[in-house]
């Protein structure tokens, strides 16, 4: 193994804080604005995304070996999208059976994880950087945790904001964007953390 554990943890934390998926890479925006009105749904969504991301990150890495072996790398996008779609279908059935309340709360956004760019994004980033398996796992876990952290923080702020009086033209979506701006500014502070 080339990378030691210190490097792996640095990779994980930079994926989680510095290159946060939602606030600095802008991946998974639909769900970021769609399911962040309530903390409960944000937590449920994060759990679903963490699971899908980690499993699809690892399986995509393994599948890519197969694609390279058969010399059909141009099929990458197609294959990965279908793997993610299948995984999401599986999770949908699982959540529906085990936790109908959460299933109803997530609504349309659960099947939409298929088209959540964060999931395909992490898969493609791992491949672009040609990470080995351990690096892939740590980077994926870090990205997924970063997603959860950002969306839960954002939901908490929006829940509080919803009882405030805002200028009428900014109510709803525009206010959400301005909130995201402030949150994103906060996360920029982590930029100084990883330079070495």
């Amino acid at each position: 193994m080339n990378a030691n554990f210190g490097e792996l943890f640095a990779l994980m934390f930079s994926a989680m804080l510095v290159y946060n998926f939602l606030l600095s890479r802008f991946l998974g925006m639909c769900s970021f604005f769609g399911v962040s009105q309530k903390i409960d749904t944000a937590v449920g969504m994060s759990i679903a995304v963490i699971f899908v991301m980690v499993v699809s990150g690892i399986s995509a890495w393994l599948l890519n070996l197969l694609l390279i072996a058969w010399n059909v790398e141009f099929l990458q996008i197609l294959v990965f999208v279908l793997v993610i779609a299948a995984l999401v279908q599986f999770i949908e059935i699982f959540v529906k059976k085990t936790n109908p309340v959460l299933y109803n709360a997530l609504g349309i956004y659960l099947p939409l994880i298929t088209t959540n760019c964060a999931v395909l994004g992490v898969v493609l980033l791992n491949l672009n950087q040609s990470y080995d398996l351990m690096q892939t796992i740590f980077n994926t876990v870090g990205s997924a945790l970063g997603y959860a952290l950002a969306i839960i923080l954002f939901a908490s702020i929006r829940e509080r904001l919803s009882i405030d009086e805002l200028p009428p033209v900014f109510e709803g979506m525009p206010a959400a964007f301005i909130t995201a701006f402030v949150l994103s500014m906060g996360f920029m502070a982590f930029n100084g953390m990883i330079k070495a």
Binding site: L23, F170, P174, A175, F177, I178, V182, M185, M188
Partner: peptide, 17 residues
């Protein structure tokens, strides 16, 4: 910078509304 994207789109949305 990344935060600027949120700011600009938020302001445009308010303006259009």
């Amino acid at each position: 910078l990344p935060p600027g994207a949120f700011l600009v789109i938020g302001l445009y949305m308010g303006l259009f509304r």
